[in-house]
Design a protein around this nucleic acid. Structure first.
Length: 464
RNA sequence: GGUGCGAUGGCCGAGCGGUUAGGCAGAGGUCUGCAAAACCUCGUACAGCGGUUCGACUCCGCUUCGCACCUCCA
């Protein structure tokens, strides 16, 4: 597979060539565990999953690291307000994150390092920056990175330092630093931090947000690694600062390829609590939508395009997945007892699928090929090739994750329903349409839909 | 002010300098006793105005509208 990925650093589509021929080092910015992640967060994690799966599909051994930010302003605030120790406060949100990821069929990363378990590594990295003259201590006990001493600062965000200006959300007065572009590597303890503090050579405090990702990614993936992903809003300052910290300390290139996922919108608007369009995954599950439907919606747009999340789209996903399940049931019935025979059917569409995915993870195009395969299977499947079609669907599913996952379960038909169905068969054979229709209505009332075909009738449970 | 992104038929959403995206919804049809499913056909879709071109939804410019980032939001 000739995989091409859009690199935010060069702003170009590039052929992906890993540093090591057979494995890929891949870091993704994970959740800040102060609350439940929302559906927009999960768009990014789902995109990262597609990348993970694509790399595996292409034959690489993937080492994905996703951090858990379990110490920052928000986690500390939450912990203090609820009077629960920090670790205890974040634990349920970490668990919720894993549960939610599972509900979306997201392939687990290989390593999930928590920031609070890697304080020594962060201190060591800050020390290195001190040694190189890139860090300085301020009177308030914090340590800052001196952006002015790092000439390549701004290469990811393409920021011109002369044009940096104080943003509306930046309150200069809260910071005691030499130049306004400088950012905190270490935050000196203050009373709002309560008992959240670690000792460092330069004083008591806690790590800055950016240093955790630099320290943990390099610990597990080395000083230079292949891929780093996150939401587009992390591009600046977070990722820019990660680069400055890592490259400032090691003098080596940090990451070869950066990928950023665009935002999710809700009904064309930015998701926000004040607009009432703010959804967590569990909100949607509670409304009866399934992880499988949500996953399909999330992958139905290209990751670099904003995605407009609507309930209409969710309903469309539900209907199309029913069509998929019908197709799979049909294939399994046809294929019963057989094994796939070469050459496999649908090769042309599988090829289209591969080409689309290899082109910067074009999931919408890949899905188009997938649905064409559904149509082809519905039209062309026979007892001899049905097993082959099933194998092709499972192949594509290694990336999509929507075929087996959350599939309509095969329900055993209760004896009472069996009996009614047989009675209906008999009535039909006698052309007693009134009776057969009466039984059909009765079955529908009991939650079973009847479909007639040449081979007889099939029963399908009706789910509201 | 800086850096970027976007505007595609009822909805979601790809794409390409000339050839069907795909899904859902809707209309008609085939099959069927009917229904369901499946399949087939259908929508005068490319924000506006100029330009380049034999030809532009696709390239260039301008305009309008929207979105993101500019110090801790995925």
């Amino acid at each position: 597979m000739n995989l091409h990925l859009y690199n935010s650093l060069t702003r170009r589509l590039e052929s992906f060539q890993p540093i090591s021929p057979d494995h890929v080092g891949y870091y993704s910015c994970g959740p800040t565990v102060y609350n439940y992640a929302h559906i927009g967060n999960f768009r990014a994690y789902t995109f990262e999953d597609i990348l993970h799966r694509t790399l595996a599909y292409a034959g690489y051994t993937v080492i994905q690291v996703m951090n858990l930010t379990d110490v920052d302003d928000k986690t500390i605030r939450g912990s203090r307000q609820s009077g629960i120790p920090l670790k205890q406060y974040t634990a349920p949100y970490i668990q919720a994150f894993f549960d939610d990821a599972k509900a979306l069929n997201i392939t687990p990363a290989q390593i999930y390092p928590a920031a609070t378990d890697h304080i020594p590594e962060m201190i060591a990295l800050v020390q290195k920056l001190f040694d190189k003259g890139l860090a300085y201590k301020s009177p308030d006990g914090s340590v800052y990175f001196s952006v002015g001493k790092h000439p390549t600062y701004g290469k990811l965000a393409h920021l011109d330092r002369d044009n940096l200006r104080v943003g509306v959300r930046m309150n200069q007065d809260e910071y005691d630093k030499e130049s306004f572009g400088d950012f905190a590597l270490w935050k000196g303890w203050d009373q709002n931090d309560g008992d959240v503090a670690w000792d460092a050579p330069w004083g008591k405090g806690r790590p800055g947000w950016h240093i955790e990702c630099s320290a943990m990614s390099m610990k597990y993936l080395g000083e230079t690694f292949d891929l780093h992903t996150g939401g587009i809003d992390n591009l600046f300052p977070h990722h820019e600062n990660e680069i400055a910290q890592a490259e400032g300390a090691t003098g080596k290139p940090f990451v070869k390829t950066w990928l950023h996922c665009a935002h999710l919108r809700v009904n064309g608007e930015k998701m926000s609590k004040s607009l009432g369009n703010f959804f967590t995954l569990r909100d949607l599950l509670a409304k009866g939508y399934t992880g499988r439907e949500i996953r399909l919606v999330l992958i139905s747009a290209h990751y670099r395009q904003p995605l407009n999340f609507t309930f209409d789209a969710l309903a469309a996903a539900k209907t199309s997945l029913e069509r998929l399940d019908d197709c799979l049931d049909r294939l399994e019935t046809l294929a019963a007892g057989t094994t796939p025979a070469e050459p496999l059917p649908g090769a042309k569409l599988v090829n289209q699928f591969d080409t689309a995915i290899a082109d910067d993870l074009n999931t919408p195009e890949a899905l188009a090929a997938f649905w064409k395969l559904v149509r082809e299977a519905n039209t062309e499947a026979t007892p001899t090739n049905a097993a082959g079609y099933l194998q092709q669907f499972h192949r594509l599913d290694r990336i999509l994750g929507i075929v087996d996952f959350g599939r309509r379960p095969k329900e055993t038909i209760p004896p009472e329903i069996q009996t009614l169905a047989q009675a209906r068969q008999k009535a039909r054979a006698e052309k007693n349409w009134a009776e057969s229709d009466r039984i059909r209505d009765l079955l529908a009332q009991k939650g079973w839909q009847v479909r007639d075909s040449k081979d007889g009738q099939t029963l399908k449970p009706i789910h509201a």
